[in-house]
Design a protein around this nucleic acid. Sequence first.
DNA 1: TCTCTTATTGACAAAGATTCTCAATAAGAC
DNA 2: GTCTTATTGAGAATCTTTGTCAATAAGAGA
Lengths: 151, 151
Amino acid sequence: MKKIEAANAAEMPGQPAKRNTPQKAAVKHALGEATGFVSAQQLHQTLKKHGSTIGLATVYRTLADLAQAGEADSLQSKDSEVLYRACTTSHHHHLICRECGLTLEIEAENLEKWADKVATEHGFVQPSHNIDIFGFCAACQSAKTESGVAK
Amino acid sequence: MKKIEAANAAEMPGQPAKRNTPQKAAVKHALGEATGFVSAQQLHQTLKKHGSTIGLATVYRTLADLAQAGEADSLQSKDSEVLYRACTTSHHHHLICRECGLTLEIEAENLEKWADKVATEHGFVQPSHNIDIFGFCAACQSAKTESGVAK
DNA sequence: TCTCTTATTGACAAAGATTCTCAATAAGAC
DNA sequence: GTCTTATTGAGAATCTTTGTCAATAAGAGA
């Protein structure tokens, strides 16, 4: 509590200089390893299973940071928990298997334009959108059919 | 606990015959009155304000039923709570104001086709999708500009 | 390399939404 | 009217997520 007026010019206001820690690296790595969307809880379990002593709060904090930095996408599951996934930073959408969680990134330039157009037509500004497609992937589909669980 | 083997043939399996109650009607009515998406908590507050003694659990149960019956649409808010809205049972999407919650129903036939096509192309079956557009409606926009809170 | 500031961490508490439990009530059929 | 049982309300219980705070350690400078 000695230097008060030092950090006033060199840094972004409100961004106090991030530090690289093994915990962040671990979360990032674990997220990259996951095949589809995973919850913070799941990620925490996985990390512990691999010997990490990382705290649950840290996992939440790191995921929130990644999501804000655009390095992860988030999504609400049916069970009211938030799921995360490592992603490219460019804008895109997802095709997600309801059974196994397999996730494909899809692009849809026309869709972006359509969404913006609809918003503008109705007088809305700063439009953003949520577009995700769900279904059963080929593998899960045949697995289901074979076991006779046809709806 | 006397008759055990009676209800085996006449009723749908697992659907024990719904009953009409004033509580259900009240929830349904309150949901219809709301202008945009509302949470179960909000709805419960509203109902209490109007003199109803309905329980919170009942509101949750009723909303879940309505959503399942296709009479209400649900949506996850940023604060990890589920929002509901009375809707037409036909398939549609929403254009939602981030500020005041004003909600417009929009149709997009081409979009439906596109979503199904993308899913099919990647081997996915039984496709469904989540498409919602957010933005600031004209009213909220001008309110913001006038108060000088331009981003 | 050593020191110093302070961002970050981990353990736990706390908040908040949703679900569960269960005795009491009342809808609908006979 | 009677009876069965779906439904209700109140509160407990559960679950996810966020906040708190002392202890730790990353990174810059000496």
